[in-house]
Design a protein around this nucleic acid. Sequence first.
DNA 1: CGAGGCATTGAAACCCTTCAATGAGTGTGG
DNA 2: CCACACTCATTGAAGGGTTTCAATGCCTCG
Lengths: 239, 239
Amino acid sequence: MYDRPNTLDAFASDSCSSAVQGRGESSPATLEQLLEGLPLSRRRLKRRQHVFRAGQPRHGLYLIHSGFFKTRVISEDGREKVTGFRLRGDLLGLDALDLPHYTCDAIALDMGEVWELPIAYLRDRVPEFQDRLTAALASEIRRDWNWMLVLGSLNAEQRVVSFLLDLSTRLSALGFSSTSILLRMTRADLGNFLSLQLETVVRALHRLQAQGLIAVDRRQIRIVDPARLRAQLTVPAIH
Amino acid sequence: MYDRPNTLDAFASDSCSSAVQGRGESSPATLEQLLEGLPLSRRRLKRRQHVFRAGQPRHGLYLIHSGFFKTRVISEDGREKVTGFRLRGDLLGLDALDLPHYTCDAIALDMGEVWELPIAYLRDRVPEFQDRLTAALASEIRRDWNWMLVLGSLNAEQRVVSFLLDLSTRLSALGFSSTSILLRMTRADLGNFLSLQLETVVRALHRLQAQGLIAVDRRQIRIVDPARLRAQLTVPAIH
DNA sequence: CGAGGCATTGAAACCCTTCAATGAGTGTGG
DNA sequence: CCACACTCATTGAAGGGTTTCAATGCCTCG
């Protein structure tokens, strides 16, 4: 019998891509370390500034060096969907790797810096680069599928819990506190990502606080009881 | 001003990956043509048979030669999510390209045949293979994002319409009728994919039939009025 | 200090889910 | 060849979680 991937475990393992096919023995753990010393063009971004927009000619791939970003797609008739929140080490533009134009918007939620990666150049000079790229692409697919599972089978409160735990894990992996979380996105962005109305997000956070699982102070979230918070995901899987 | 990708257009353009970065002039349009003549191990599958299961050691990638498949992920506590329905030309196992084990189940919905692609071998011998792989991965990400958008912003009826139009487009690209569609999956599978209960799918199909947009006969669907069906997606974007 | 963006809260409405029962189609075994 | 079993689809009714709409409050910034 084989182990089935746990939703949360899958999230966690994806945050720092581990087992890349064909990778040699010891090598830099992060893409950033791998690219250290290369003359990459860096770009600083302010709040609400776009790294790129859907439809623009694709230049390269962007590696987040610092800051907090969101990616989103917008349909012809204006419906928007936040496809993810991206942190240091994440790549922006993966979805358009085979296209001449970007297909999503990448927007800074606060100040940040990205490094532009010249794909063709790196593919030729950095042996591991192609494998890293493949790993990042596959990882994004798994991430998307996990969120589709979450959105399709959990209620509002559980979705918010999933989000908080995921963010906590990712921030923790970057060396930040796993219990003190500063949300950089609006309630509307969060709701959009979780396929909920912003009021529903507010009420879910409120209920979680009332249960003593978290403490909410505007965008500052403190995880009071991680264990019971996690336990919320295994209770009556309503919906 | 740049064009934003239309949901449906995006679906359509993804069905036959077109502009692969760095691809030369004339070359086989499909992966299958590219691999013609190579000694690939083929595998016939019966209804309900698994191509692979999550957790199994990853062998290679599978190219669907014929048949109708579904992929799904299952969480630790048994929640299931159908992540897609796959047709001829689609690849199975992309999500685990960087992992030693598969992360989803791939299941035949009727009789079919898949070709097992030895990745490392093909990467070395077939120049275009890596680019095709990248294109397939990025394409899957765009596909997932588009479905996330659909599920997050459209009501039950519109989701079913989106599904029918998408399937119609894909079947059409394979040379099948675009108006006479045989659903190979159960209402439950379809509902799971669309994040709806099977009863809701039934009722949505019923209403679409009542409006004269489609004709439903068990799993046989006939698209009576494609234009008005498409128009359903631009009306009161409820939700 | 007013303006604006964002968050909160309440109440009503609604779409979808849930539960239950029936029906249709298929396959198998006596 | 028919009957039983089983899977899948259909339909109805009730309930409920989210949405929708509206109003208020809070904080930041010019």
